[in-house]
Design a protein around this nucleic acid. Structure first.
Lengths: 204, 204, 204, 204
DNA sequence: GATGAATGAGACTTCATTCAT
DNA sequence: AATGAATGAAGTCTCATTCAT
């Protein structure tokens, strides 16, 4: 390994440290409390040095969000598809997604409750033809298409449906996160009912 | 009317002025730009006096949000119910809600993207039995119950259903607001499909 | 005197304090070293409060410059005009101007060596018709016109001449200020020669 | 050529690169935007290395200014002298100088508006006997002497006159540069009048 | 000879809140 | 009741310079 590569690795390590620190603050204290100074304090460096590794705060946030989001999405992608009852896999994947999000409120808020353009550019999903850009929507679309093929869903536009599943599920997660004092039991009832309506809504 | 009452009235009047100014700023400039000083400037009082009427900024925001939200909800409540096809009224009311929200992004973000506990305490809807506290959910529940009675919806738990309609619709609005560059046409497609799935999901 | 007036006076007093502190720093340390923090330190207030009295740093600098410049200009205006030999008064006034400038290098640099638009807007003199806006150029113009009348100067455009006198004299001052190690004697020779050429240049 | 010499050459080459980069930035972005890091970026070296070749930023600026200034002066020196009407050549050269300066505001500001001692040490011209050190003043002096010889100028001290021509012309340029919104026409009127007075001032 | 990471100081500005008047 | 001056902390960012490698 040459010197250049070693240096590159070193850079990546520090970048990672910065992102992790930012992630942590975002998670613990929320988006509004995230500051360059706090990140610097956390990694025990001077504030200035952060600008060696990132252009500005926006870039840090964008990276944090993207990283975190990708990590979360990976979890769902790994769900194997039930060839006979693909709709079951669909629900299962989404439930897992909800669960992970509930366990990572900071991440979710950073994605959903964030108005920064740079962040939104990495997580937008409503555009027509977005499947080509967003793996998550692409997978969802394919799974829906497959379920239609198998005769389990009625003939709906698969991308549009994927988008609505996504937005409605996000809506549920958002409120589950923002409202404290909801019992575990009630949470589960809501989640079950959410999917109950969705399934009915898509079944022939 | 005694002096005490007159004073009370005076207080209410100024509180209202403060809230209106805050509302205006929230609407025009967004949540992040709302500051005590800007409110004071707008009502042409001194910053200090605001603390006579409100404990702190959080209380102001909470009040603003509640007021604004109530105003919005009033719009939907006024939709008359179609006695034969109550589900049509349901959809119509919700579409109107979406439309108003899209026209008032500040308000929506203040409600949905806001982490302040005091705010959330006034707009939470997931709790079991919330219908008794939130008129919006109560009405929605009643409308759903009525639609079930009329044989247009299958037998679902009406409150739970109202909650899911609410969360999923919020999810759609949130993304519609956050994502720029969505064409009007695509927006409409998404909204239509959202209700298409909902309706199918609730119909027998 | 009412409360409002007293308060107004108080404000003016602090504004003056700020301007004086800024002036002092400008004079002692130069334009580049002038900072809000330094001003705050000097007047023993917090930095923030300065923004109560001035919109931003630019406004402070503009005020400092204008104030200082007006003060300097006042000195020249007071020179009485020799009715028979007005050109002598002209030279005398300009020499006084040079002398004051040399005694206030900070002020001069703030005016002449400064690129801030707000500052330049207050001291620009090259525009055609500027006499109406700048008292200094107006007076100079009038004096030149009077000298022409008296038959001591040839017929030149008085404003244009005033402008050239101004720019060339500024040029001399600038270099006298920037170059250290010029002997008093040499300074005087230069100044005398400057006016010798000017006088010759304008005499019939 | 020995190793030492080759190294010396190498050093000069890099120094030149640094100065050229600094020059370019000065010209394009102005004095205030000139930073070590920008220079380093431009020459694609590290910031640290610059301190191998120059003691500090001041030294770089001083060198830049001197180089740039020399380059500009070369332009004037090349003007051929009209043997019969040498004063015409004088004016012509100075006009060219003004023109070049107006086209290179960065350079001019770096020379005229700059307080760094190291810079001033390289462009000072007021000292008695400076002709021996500054080629520009020397040439100007000689040209003036020659014009006197030819009977076109009255008998003035040539160095002193050269200095006053220099300072007054600088004064004009300075204001022409600092004041925006001066029409091309007005600029020309001012320049013409400047030389008109100068010529009259020196003619018998 | 060269790197480039790191520092530490400093820049301007905004803010919620307090408190003497 | 009302003022508004004042604070202190915090925000992002840029810079000249140093120094271990």
């Amino acid at each position: 390994m040459g010197i250049a590569e070693r240096r590159q690795e070193e850079i990546e390590k520090i970048k990672k440290k910065i992102i992790e620190a930012a992630s942590y603050i975002l998670m613990k204290e929320g988006y509004e409390k995230l500051s360059i100074r706090k990140i610097a304090d956390k990694i025990e460096y001077s504030p200035g040095i952060i600008y060696h590794y990132f252009k500005d705060k926006g870039e840090i946030i964008a990276t944090v969000v993207e990283n975190g989001y990708q990590k979360i999405l990976k979890n769902i992608i790994d769900v194997p598809v039930d060839q006979e009852n693909p709709e079951k896999s669909l629900i299962q994947g989404l439930k897992k997604y909800i669960q992970i999000m509930l366990e990572n409120p900071g991440q979710f808020k950073a994605v959903l409750m964030n108005d920064i353009q740079e962040v939104q550019d990495k997580v937008n999903i409503l555009e027509k033809g977005i499947s080509k850009k967003r793996k998550s929507i692409e997978m969802l679309s394919q799974l829906i298409a497959f379920t239609i093929e198998k005769g389990k869903f009625r003939a709906v536009d698969e991308e549009l449906t994927a988008q609505i599943i996504w937005t409605s599920t996000h809506g549920l997660i958002a409120r589950l996160l923002l409202e404290k004092n909801i019992s575990e039991e009630q949470k589960n009832r809501l989640i079950e009912h959410h999917f109950d309506i969705l399934l009915h809504g898509l079944t022939k």
